[in-house]
Design a protein around this nucleic acid. Structure first.
Length: 250
DNA sequence: AACACCCGCAACCGCACTATA
DNA sequence: GTATAGTGCGGTTGCGGGTGT
């Protein structure tokens, strides 16, 4: 019948990765490339399942990962891409070099959703939140209660902390994006013509190319971050690594 | 100083799709 | 053609650090 099971779950480690485990996995992949995730933990001497190793490599150990906070440009891109692609985080990540789907997903759920709510935009539809008269009345009542508790001061502070543009800026941004895409005459708004087939990737690549990323620094950042923890003596020179031919992760 | 609460992120879980025997 | 393993993806969870009381 089919293939062997991916891993025996019994006796395998779970939870946070230790520096030693990171070292083993990184050393193995840099020396041998990505072969078969099921085999990697065994060959690398790790008590982890292949799935866990894959996730750790993709989300944390990959040399081309960009570290640090998301820039406002990146946030805008995520919002725009989310408007087009929805919750397809891996597709969104494909247009943000050095960022992982998990990272983007987390950032969306923890920051951008709130930011959009504060701007009066529905994060799922990307449209201004509309309320019925009844809801409006209820909302007004709630707001009055909030005022009594002096919550508005807190909200104001949050908004300042986030250094937000005005809601109109964001809406204008959407309009500009659609104009750009429409000019390419390859794409229709998915909401208005969801069944239409179009070259989404081409259009996105075009619109994203204007805000190119400074990838040249990402590898050095990664080296700087890891250097303090790991010994580089056990790693091969970069030329050797690439001659081994690391297979593309995705 | 101690405790409670909140938030962000890393990791896990489960499902869907693809590959293979 | 079918059953099952492998892989990828999105949703969810839980831990740890930060902040407020």
């Amino acid at each position: 019948m089919g293939r062997k099971p991916c891993c025996e779950k019994v006796g395998l480690r779970r939870g946070p990765w230790t520096a030693d485990e990171d070292h083993k996995l990184m050393t193995f992949i840099l020396n041998n490339g990505i072969l078969c995730w099921r085999l990697i933990p065994k060959l690398a001497g790790l008590m982890r399942c292949g799935k866990s190793c894959r996730l750790r490599w993709i989300n944390y150990l990959r040399p081309d990962l960009k570290r640090g906070a998301f820039t406002e440009i990146e946030e805008d891109q995520i919002i725009q891409l989310h408007a087009l692609l929805g919750n397809r985080w891996s597709k969104i990540a494909a247009h943000l070099p050095g960022r992982t789907d998990n990272e983007i997903k987390n950032h969306w759920n923890t920051r951008i959703k709130k930011k959009m709510n504060l701007l009066g935009l529905d994060p799922s539809t990307h449209k201004p939140i509309t309320v019925s008269p009844k809801q409006q009345q209820q909302q007004q009542q709630e707001e009055e209660e909030e005022e009594e508790e002096d919550i508005n001061l807190g909200l104001q502070k949050k908004q300042e902390d986030l250094q937000l543009g005005s809601p109109m800026d964001l809406l204008n941004g959407y309009e500009m994006l659609w104009e750009t895409l429409d000019n390419g005459s390859k794409i229709d708004h998915p909401k208005t013509n969801p069944s239409n087939s179009f070259s989404l990737d081409d259009s996105l690549n075009h619109s994203m190319s204007e805000s190119s990323f400074q990838q040249e620094n990402s590898l050095q950042c990664w080296v700087d971050n890891v250097e303090s923890v790991l010994s580089w003596d056990e790693f091969l020179p970069i030329e050797d690594i690439f001659s081994f031919g690391i297979l593309p992760v995705n």
